[in-house]
Design a binder for these strands. Sequence first.
DNA 1: TAGAAAGTTTAGCATAGGCTAACTTATATG
DNA 2: CATATAAGTTAGCCTATGCTAAACTTTCTA
Lengths: 149, 149
Amino acid sequence: MALGNRKGTNAKLRSAAFKRVRADHSAELAGDYVEMIADLIDDHGEARCTDIAMRLGVANATVVKTLKRLTDQGLVTQEPYRAIFLTGEGWKLAEDGKRKHQIVEQFLLALGVPADTAKIDAEGIEHHVSADTLKAMAKFVSRNPFHSR
Amino acid sequence: MALGNRKGTNAKLRSAAFKRVRADHSAELAGDYVEMIADLIDDHGEARCTDIAMRLGVANATVVKTLKRLTDQGLVTQEPYRAIFLTGEGWKLAEDGKRKHQIVEQFLLALGVPADTAKIDAEGIEHHVSADTLKAMAKFVSRNPFHSR
DNA sequence: TAGAAAGTTTAGCATAGGCTAACTTATATG
DNA sequence: CATATAAGTTAGCCTATGCTAAACTTTCTA
Ligand SMILES: [Mn+2]
Ligand SMILES: [Mn+2]
Ligand SMILES: [Mn+2]
Ligand SMILES: [Mn+2]
């Protein structure tokens, strides 16, 4: 019953894949927020709602609501009408996310994708890259120093 | 004002990236559904709610609700208590999606990612790959015939 | 330092995409 | 052919993510 077995295995793998995608998407917004907040703090000394809203391309109120969730999740701290800070956990998540994002974007560049496109595609792809794939991408980058065209 | 200009350009590119990700996610579920329905019809002669639900790892009622949206979007046709069919537009979307999915998965394999991981990661990545990136991936696959390990 | 401008928050709304439980219809089997 | 089982549907609930408009606070500036 090798064939039946393969079928069963495939079925499980298939639904596992979709479950992973849904889990990735659940984590995605939090990852993008903390990464952006970390960048804003590094670049400007502080992170404000308006900047986040502008960079994400969403309304201010949307950012406020999301930050409340992130605060509940222990990633962010804030006081009314003040700038936003990251907790220890928030910083860690931001660092991990930045590293992954970096590798994915460098990888796309090394593959020969135009710079603007690489930036855009990396923003979505980064959240679906497993440890194995990230390792393979990093290896490729180190073996293929970036050459334009 | 080259620097100011670069900043403005980056800001626009950044928010464009997030907007693209949100658009990709809006289109994602429809793409996965029609692809799966096409596969079911090819393999079993028909596509039923239960099969879709099982393969996606969601409840039956979720599938029913989603199919209603897809019907409204003109991708799917159905009659009560009967199997599901694709419209012309649905088939086209399914074909395009399958092709893209195929390339992404083959690409990950060619990169050296383990088969199960490639399958899983491809399910998410496929929706964030632009035409440029897809072309680069296809080229890489054709130049790097799959070698395990 | 008073008032205007800028930024933040709240309230209220909408849609997508999940779930369970209860009900209805179709199909398979004795 | 009658009924048990399988499949599909409906209702009602929930959370995440968006939006606009209005209210409130802080900050800048004349
Ligand atoms: Mn991202
Ligand atoms: Mn995604
Ligand atoms: Mn697919
Ligand atoms: Mn997919």
